[in-house]
Simulated assay, not measured.
Amino acid sequence: MTVLGAVFRPQLPPERLRSMARLADDAGIEELWLWEDCFLEGGISTAAAALAWTERVRVGVGLLPVPLRNVAVAAMEAATLHRLFPGRALLGVGHGVQDWMEQAGARVESPMTLLREYVDALRALLGGERLTTQGRYVRLTDVALDWPPPPGSEVPVLAGATGPRTLRLSGEVADGTILTVATSPEGVRRARRLIDEGREAAGRTGPHRVVVNLLTTTGPDALRRLRAELANEGVDTVPDLGVAGDAQAVAKAVRALADAGADTVVLQPTADEPDPEGFLRFTAEEVRPLVP
């Protein structure tokens, strides 16, 4: 079954999160995804609050920019969420937008090297290992979590990826991959091939979850808002991106991404979505019944 989620965009003030998280929980949305975009809202703080305010919805952070967060601290935060809310926290990490990393004084010379070292260390710490490593960027001495996730619990680490090298790397080191709204169904197929190349090179045989964001608009001016957002993202010339229309049209777009290899499709509203609460209801009540 295709997992269907929705995004709470950090362009909304954080005080809106409580009511929307509860709405997502009550409406039956499977996953509510949050962002840690600079310089809007913190991913871990918002995830913890959303999880505390709800009972069943899974909450994802897609994604934490690794240059901004020491991996030991990220492991502590992730382990705490997994122990407080078993099976409901999802964590994605990635390079971060390089201009933002420059603004924050955190940009590194080799984002690929950092991401590889970071994901390897994060997965090891969350797996209960005691770690000493002296990498180019990740340097730990005799570090182990006193409160790791319970043995046997599923603690996947997902990586955000766009380019071929990062997609292969995600297949090598991560448990899943997050793809942006700039990914068409054909782009999902290409991503799956590259991820599988990385998995094969690393000898990994377990499941690898692919999460795809789908820019979605509905309502009277849906097409105009979709086109404006794609233009703002600089991907308006890429075919088959996003969907504008009613629940049938959205469900068809979701199914196309799922057929291409997406395990989870996350409906992402535009930054100017006039009714964010209505968008969540639309996702749960109108689109979900049409997606197998």
Rank of each mutant, 00 (worst) to 15 (best):
E186G: 12
E186D: 15
E186W: 08
E186M: 05
E186R: 13
E186V: 04
G187E: 12
G187K: 07
G187M: 09
V188R: 08
V188E: 08
V188G: 08
R189Q: 15
R189C: 02
R189D: 04
R189N: 05
R189T: 13
R189G: 07
R190F: 01
R190P: 00
R190Q: 14
A191G: 08
A191C: 02
A191L: 01
A191R: 00
R192D: 06
R192Y: 07
R193D: 12
R193E: 15
R193S: 14
R193I: 05
R193Q: 14
L194H: 03
I195K: 09
I195W: 07
I195C: 09
I195P: 02
D196N: 13
D196T: 03
D196R: 13
D196Q: 12
D196C: 00
D196Y: 07
E197P: 08
E197M: 03
E197Q: 14
G198I: 08
G198N: 11
R199F: 11
R199Q: 11
R199I: 12
R199G: 12
R199A: 13
R199L: 14
A201C: 03
A201M: 06
A201H: 04
A202I: 00
G203N: 13
G203F: 10
T205I: 08
T205F: 06
T205E: 14
T205C: 02
P207A: 15
P207W: 00
P207D: 11
P207I: 03
P207F: 09
P207V: 08
P207Q: 02
H208L: 01
H208R: 04
H208Q: 10
H208G: 10
H208M: 04
R209E: 13
R209M: 05
R209N: 00
R209S: 08
V210K: 00
V210R: 13
V210D: 11
V211R: 11
V211D: 06
V211K: 07
V211E: 11
V212P: 01
V212K: 06
V212G: 02
N213T: 02
N213H: 15
N213A: 09
N213E: 15
L214N: 04
L214E: 08
L214S: 03
L215I: 05
L215P: 02
L215V: 03
L215N: 04
T216S: 10
T216Q: 12
T217M: 06
T217I: 00
T218R: 15
T218S: 15
T218K: 09
T218W: 15
G219I: 10
G219M: 07
P220F: 03
P220W: 04
P220H: 09
P220I: 05
D221G: 05
A222D: 03
A222Y: 07
A222L: 07
A222W: 04
L223Q: 14
R224F: 10
R224K: 11
R225M: 11
R225L: 09
L226C: 10
L226H: 05
L226K: 07
R227V: 10
R227F: 04
R227A: 12
A228F: 00
E229Y: 13
E229M: 14
E229T: 13
L230T: 06
L230W: 11
L230N: 06
A231H: 14
N232W: 13
E233Q: 15
E233N: 13
E233G: 12
E233C: 14
G234P: 03
G234H: 06
G234L: 05
